[in-house]
Design a protein around this nucleic acid. Sequence first.
DNA 1: ACCAAATCTGACAACGCTGTCAAATAAATA
DNA 2: TATTTATTTGACAGCGTTGTCAGATTTGGT
Lengths: 358, 358
Amino acid sequence: MTQIKVPADRVKELGGGNAVSTINDVARLAGVSIKTVSRVMNNEPNVREETRTKVKDAANLLHYRPNLLARSLAGARSFLIGLLYDNPSSSYVIDLQSGVIARCRESGYHVLSEPQDSLAPDLGRAIASLLATIRLDGVILTPPLCDMAMVLEAVEAAGVPYVRVSPYAYPGRSAQVEMDDSLAAYKMTQHLLGLGHRDIGFVRGHPEHGSSHRRYEGFLQAMNEAGLTPRSDWIKQGFNSFASGIDAAKALFETRTDLPTALFASNDEMAFGIMAYAQQIGVKIPDQVSVVGFDDTPGSTVIWPHLTTIRQPVVDLAYAAADILLSRANGDDDAPVLTRVSRLLPFELVQRDSAKSI
Amino acid sequence: MTQIKVPADRVKELGGGNAVSTINDVARLAGVSIKTVSRVMNNEPNVREETRTKVKDAANLLHYRPNLLARSLAGARSFLIGLLYDNPSSSYVIDLQSGVIARCRESGYHVLSEPQDSLAPDLGRAIASLLATIRLDGVILTPPLCDMAMVLEAVEAAGVPYVRVSPYAYPGRSAQVEMDDSLAAYKMTQHLLGLGHRDIGFVRGHPEHGSSHRRYEGFLQAMNEAGLTPRSDWIKQGFNSFASGIDAAKALFETRTDLPTALFASNDEMAFGIMAYAQQIGVKIPDQVSVVGFDDTPGSTVIWPHLTTIRQPVVDLAYAAADILLSRANGDDDAPVLTRVSRLLPFELVQRDSAKSI
DNA sequence: ACCAAATCTGACAACGCTGTCAAATAAATA
DNA sequence: TATTTATTTGACAGCGTTGTCAGATTTGGT
């Protein structure tokens, strides 16, 4: 296979040693021009098969890896994707990051993690500055950043393609990936109904969060379709935190007699709060009250009983987001339609032990 | 202040428009050479104050940001730090990442997050390849990667400075940051002792994990110093998982009569398992048995009662690791001593509700 | 065997910046 | 004032790639 006839010791001299070898080393060893090496490394057409193997062999011999920075500078692509986020839960961010990185690796891309302060007044400038400093091939925006005009404007002004994950503001303004929060809440409610529950309470999520409204809608719809009208004193406003779950539980359980048989919390954290409080005052879960959450955070298998909840496909969402960016960056550049694609990913209702039939 | 006399419309023509402006635009606008602009942007000495402001004004006017990629290619630094990790818990990784990013931002650096598969046989090659592709200015290695010979060799071969976070293998081989696991376990045990406990059990951590041994040592030392000999049937081997915590609890609580009054789990996850099982079989925590953990994972304030545990300064550790790298990269390049520095950071015993006095 | 059309290949100029070194200018000294 | 010395500036050559375009080679059709 190795068709190169070069004295073995020449290899070292050409860069096989400690220093990283460059395209020039490979070209010299293979006896071709650097441009041809470039063609081979980028799988470009119009290279004779014989030449191609010659170059590949030389590259392998020298452990040659094209320098990403040089490629970016010379070419149109930077092989860098930016992930902009602002702190939601750590597991959310990590899942997001895993998904993005997984997809990026498939295409030789790398990921720059750039947490931002969504409360900073100069957020727009910070992002503009970032994008001016590093010409990213794409940016992935997550809540709450993906719903902020300032952010969208900065990214658009820089002309960098972007995808939003689970956005709720400015629909249709960009490509996006999401799951159907409303349907998931609908299904969860149906699940509770199927378990025989009729007296179902709901703890609403943070009103600033788009998904909170969608989840509540899904709940209402399922109830309506079952011919049930939720009791208003069993609907509580929470703020997605453990503490607000406790508060909601306090209010809900005030009268120790007139209790709902099931409680649907708009996110896991609040469900944890409810369960903690219930345990404190001796309300048995799920025997007296079934509790379900939403998100499937790591805590849901730590708490006892394990929480029945909705698993968001965060990794997949992130993978899909990166995929949109990369298939645009690699393949058809002339597919502006892709810019506005929207992908809807399936969720999963994971049944554990915090809800049981009545 | 603005000493530039250029017709306003010229600004646009020079790059104030949509396109990102380059060092050439600034040089032209300021009426100096690009080298002088470079000097100003890098805060190099030997530039007249007048010239400096002239350049700065021009740069501001054009919203000029030096292109990181070009800087890397031309200069000796890449302004990129790599964070290599392999999945421990998501909160651990996120904390790590936050700390690294925080420090990097102070110096205009960016972070490449590069999860690795520590079980992959070609891990060394993967890392070598990464380092050949992107000339990183430094790499941060976390457990378990920081204890693998293959990894260290790859990084050393590439000649990239690196810092290890909480390593246990190959002491002294590199710069490192860590906390004193042994001392922390010692203090926690003393805390339990101070609460009046004498019958203390211990659930050991994963034997492959260096910190597991240190934590156990700290426990033993405190017990010894108190003149106590731990009962061997109250020492259980766990594997850092929730499930192994349950298993340990099962064994420990088998005889419902002869129970320890306190249980020290080598990590939070196992403590959660213990608490879950205890709750199941009706053992009251902390009334009958006090339980403490180690790590202060997010779950510890979700579980009820909230867990008394040791807070690892993960963010600070990561910050310190990046700091070592950056002070080397920026300041004294001729400080090879720095290469082997070791920083020990303080932990914190956080008292919550899962342990009470006897 | 000859010419046009494909198919390969290479020279060379970017990309945007930093490093080197020499030239120009200002300050200090005699 | 004439020199020497320190300070400030700029020209220019890279850094390791890709893009452009022209030249060389092969292929296909008579």
